[in-house]
Amino acid sequence: MLPPEKLLDMYYKMVLIRAFEDKVHELFAQGKIPGFVHLYAGEEAVAVGVISNLKKGDYITSTHRGHGHCIAMGVDIKGMMAELFGRKTGTCKGKGGSMHIADFEVGMLGANGIVGAGGPLAVGAALALKYKGTDNVVVCFAGDGAQNQGAILESLNLAAIWKLPVIFVVEDNQYAISLRSLTPSKLQPRTSTARSVAERAVGFGIPSVTVDGQDVLAVYEAAKAAVERARRGEGPSLLDCKTYRYYGHFEGDPMVYRSVEEIEEWRKRDPILLFKQRLIRDGIATEELLEDIRRRAVKEVEDAVEFAERSPYPEPSEAYTDVFTDPYY
């Protein structure tokens, strides 16, 4: 059993992600955040369960739905919020926005606007770590939809033949925009004939396991085995985590492809709710303590919004910097 401090820290990270995403949802609707925004609410157990196994020097690659990965890696949420507001104080100076937050100092190699693009980057980072002789690892987060992208399939093969320390984490939230990962309909063809991505990994010689992505401890345990294996130099693994996103694919999505009932059904197994029940049942925390933690998270998000709103926009001349390491563009 994990020490109580660790468990409570995991709980804190999950509610911080939820509070952040709920707030961004609200701010987007108010027209305060521009651009394309993809929220992670509902999938918190995956990011937190996996990332709680990482240590300094480890890396992750992320997706268009990257806020949860950032927060679990410890990216400062003030900078993240300011980034979403396009301000100078943002994690990436306001140049990247929601789809491109990166913070290499904490090992977050970047959210990504191109589905599947994190795969090869994860393989390359793992190649560098192995070359340098460390026992560090790389986690590649990618959605169910991304699994059909050539770059991901090529990455699985490369990681396997080079025996690299990569943990491929599939976030199967049931949908790739409107396309269902598991339940084709009369009007919509299958996106894969494999029963699961875990089954596919076998063909690459990569050990894989299907995980209840709503249960943060189940994710933690599965990731622990995969991370340890990678640290021992035994090569890549794949975790196929079954989960669900609560908000639309992007903010503003009319969601014609699914019903409110379906969302309600998944909410009954909300990852934060399940973890809370577990912590209380096991005598790790009281309802009050957990509520305090949640309130602290909400307050931190409010402070982040205030910070973002107070921050200046970048100077227009900033548009021409950072193309190369020298000023040329």
Binding site: G35, G86, R87, G97, Y313, P314, P316, A319, Y329
Partner: peptide, 16 residues
């Protein structure tokens, strides 16, 4: 458009 990646911040995007 100057040959730089399209920046996110509305201020920067308008600039280019």
């Amino acid at each position: 458009t100057p040959t730089v990646p399209i920046p996110f911040s509305p201020v920067l995007e308008k600039e280019i």
